[in-house]
Nucleic acid binder design. Structure first.
Lengths: 260, 260
DNA sequence: CCGTGTGAAATATTTCACAGCC
DNA sequence: GGCTGTGAAATATTTCACACGG
């Protein structure tokens, strides 16, 4: 309602500040945090394939990063590797999941049951990472009342006015906005008023939230435009074929393990 | 096919390198490029509302960034503002669109016609930014042949084996992967073989591509895990309420203009 | 040996603060 | 007087390269 809230966007503001080592020891850089989920997923795939140990070189290649970056990232969590050997796949996966807070379940409320909302509800890998959809809301009378999701965990679309109740009853921690852009700020305000402090916004709109609330955004149009920019650049300047590139590659063994 | 391709991910690698001023003048930082689409969208909204001029302070607030950052970003494009006055909304929007390559149309091929694929096809703001869906493919017999999209620009789901033909005939520049993770690398390889050098990947998988191909990824699970991390942090350490925050806000006038 | 963990150097990005121009 | 454009300082992130431990 009032203007007494600040505008915050994805990368711009984390909770209070990033990593000016405040009190204790570990202040993990944002850039590292953003990569941990990928490391975690790949480690899970390796574990499933029976791989028990990986070197930073191998894991880095499988994750699409440099080994130096991977080691530096992991060093922020602690010393979980063994020199001369590498990392124990399961142990490292566990440490990362703990750091990310995946060991406890997080309730997610999804607002907007259009195509995107459907896609989100259908997303496997939700539950597997400790996220549970505790509510799905939409304002359109035609979809309210419908049941989505798998047979074993059905989700009924609730009317918008139940948002506050759904958040409270479900103990939701994270709100996902999958509405048209013009509804996004209202939905955001209501989520925040209901106590949600972490929001993932798919609507192409800049959201204003009070301090202490984190918003991350996923914007298709933005991604396409970034690609278009580079595409244009490539076409503009065809000169110079000099190469500078880290010719990393996925080792046979791991490649197969992951595609298995 | 072979292992002679490097692994690249979203932020990791641009086309050749970022902004080591090679030849001419303008090397725009990646971080700036990533924000230009937002500036562009907001400027468009302002223009529609009849606003003709904005100061960096106002525009920055509406975009959720600091004014210093906005000015620095814009300075990479040229000197398009007027000291003591601000920026001409339409002129600046045009300059940004030109820089992003939005003045020419880009063909987009979407692979995967599940819920996400549907959502992407339905996405308005696709066409408005110069992107045109020139093809939609899926491997599932049940969806192949169906017609999606609006009445005035219908899109028929084509079978996967037509991928190469669709890319060639439609002159597609950008490929969007909206398939399950286990199909992503195959689809990616075929897109690249067909000549696509810009890929947007929604599948939770690390893609390997040859040099010269750019991949950007959008990963729901990653975003949720980042939010979960911060959420956990907030709960772990309730101490210290000292504030450090840029108390920016959206001015009445602009706020209304944008929500109009 | 081999591969991790890490200081130190190199880059990239953000913020400051103010000169310059309308 | 007000606001842009921008060097210079402060931060953040990545890369290097090597000491150290199993």
């Amino acid at each position: 309602m009032s203007a007494a809230r600040s505008v915050r966007t994805a990368a711009s503001a984390a909770v209070g500040g990033s990593n000016r080592g405040r009190d204790g020891a570990r202040e993990i850089p944002d850039a590292t945090i953003a990569r941990l989920p990928v490391y975690h997923r790949v480690l899970g795939q390796l574990a499933e394939s029976g791989v028990t140990t990986v070197s930073s070189e191998e894991l880095a290649a499988a994750c699409g990063v440099s080994s130096a970056k991977l080691r530096k990232d992991l060093s922020h969590l602690g010393s979980y590797g063994t020199r001369g050997v590498g990392y124990d796949v399961r142990f490292l996966a566990y440490q990362i999941s703990r750091e990310l807070g995946l060991s406890q379940p997080w309730g997610v409320v999804i607002v907007g049951a259009g195509n995107l909302g459907h896609a989100l509800v259908a997303y496997r890998g939700f539950a597997s990472r400790g996220f549970a959809v505790v509510g799905l809301l939409d304002s359109h009378p035609d979809v309210v009342g419908r049941t989505l999701g798998s047979a074993d965990s059905p989700i009924v679309v609730r009317p918008m006015h139940e948002l506050e109740a759904v958040v409270a009853d479900g103990g939701a921690h994270i709100g996902v906005i999958a509405t048209p852009a013009d509804a996004a700020q209202d939905v955001c305000d209501r989520l925040v008023a209901a106590g949600v402090r972490s929001i993932l916004n798919f609507a192409p709109a800049v959201l204003s939230v009070p301090e202490g609330v984190e918003v991350r955004k996923v914007d298709l149009a933005v991604e396409l435009q970034i690609l278009a920019f580079h595409e244009q650049r490539r076409n503009d300047e065809p000169p110079e074929s000099a190469e500078r590139e880290i010719p990393s590659f996925v080792p046979e063994s791991l490649g197969e393990a992951i595609n298995a």
